[in-house]
């Protein structure tokens, strides 16, 4: 499985290089602007704050692009010609699928760490903001609640992608059509699963697990954020259910790959 991950990463080296250089360039550009403005502290903190947030938004775009690429390459493996290589290797379906999940986690971590770095760097340089931010950076990085939140988000994203992969694979086992009839079907499967999960989650929260929440205060070490320092209540039941569905989707997709594939 790790060999497959290594080859996938090698195949994408150009893509990663271009993406990361772009993000670095954007960060550096903003940073030099901030450095140039240092002598002119007219700008108020909220306006300065906008720049790191814009940067965070760019990182979200980067992540969205990588996610689309992940889904497209997976679909190509099932519907395109390279699948004949991947699936004629002596590997179990779980290993092939696992390599995709590892890549996804890798992309997510790169985005998270890269995004955090550029936002923190920019916040530390922002005129009118840097003085407030600097003393808190170390403490913020050690906020357990923040990392728990990130982990939760990662689990939900991975589950979502596992369900996507299941949809694509299921579509492919039904038809050998190259005309992406299967993808239409897989979209329907994904929507149905998401809808069912949401309904069931709400039902469980209302009937069985009323008032079960996860209360985290990820921003508690950033007092300058104002209202944001209040503890936040995160739903617990629906995401857990969703993650369980993700695990189920992984198991079922692996089984389909081993037994029911029609390339």
């Amino acid at each position: 499985m790790w060999k497959l991950v290594r080859y996938q990463l090698r195949g994408r080296r150009l893509l990663y290089t271009i993406g990361l250089i772009t993000m670095c360039a954007l960060t550096l550009y903003q940073a030099t602007r901030f450095i140039g403005m240092r002598d002119n502290p007219v700008q108020s903190a909220p306006i300065s704050m906008g720049v790191p947030l814009t940067m965070a938004f760019f990182w979200v775009l980067f992540y969205a692009a990588m996610t689309v690429i992940n889904i497209v390459t997976y679909t190509q493996d099932l519907y395109g010609d390279t699948g004949y290589l991947v699936f004629s290797l002596p590997l179990r379906g779980a290993e092939v699928l696992g390599s995709r999940i590892v890549l996804l986690v890798f992309d997510t971590l790169v985005t998270l760490l890269g995004g955090m770095t550029s936002v923190i760097v920019l916040a530390c340089l922002a005129p009118g903001l840097s003085q407030q931010v600097r003393p808190y950076v170390g403490r913020f990085l050690l906020t357990g609640d923040y990392w728990v939140m990130c982990l939760g988000v990662l689990a939900v994203i991975v589950s979502f992608m596992a369900i996507m992969f299941f949809g694509v694979t299921f579509g492919k086992t039904l038809t050998n059509s190259k005309k992406h009839l299967g993808s239409v079907f897989s979209a329907l499967v994904v929507i149905a699963v998401l809808w069912a999960s949401a309904q069931l989650g709400t039902l469980l929260e209302m009937r069985l697990f009323e008032g079960v929440h996860l209360t985290l205060s990820p921003w508690r070490n950033l007092p300058f954020l104002g209202l944001g320092t209040q503890p936040v209540q995160f739903p617990l039941v629906s995401p857990s259910l969703f993650v369980m569905l993700g695990v189920l989707a992984f198991a079922m997709t692996s089984w389909l790959m081993d037994r029911k594939l029609n390339l």
Partner: peptide, 25 residues
Amino acid sequence: GVATKAIVSFLPDVNHLDRWMSVGE
């Protein structure tokens, strides 16, 4: 299955190689 894939050498009728690879890779 996995065991037969280890002893079967398959040549599909379309190019199954990734285009980014060199022949050596």
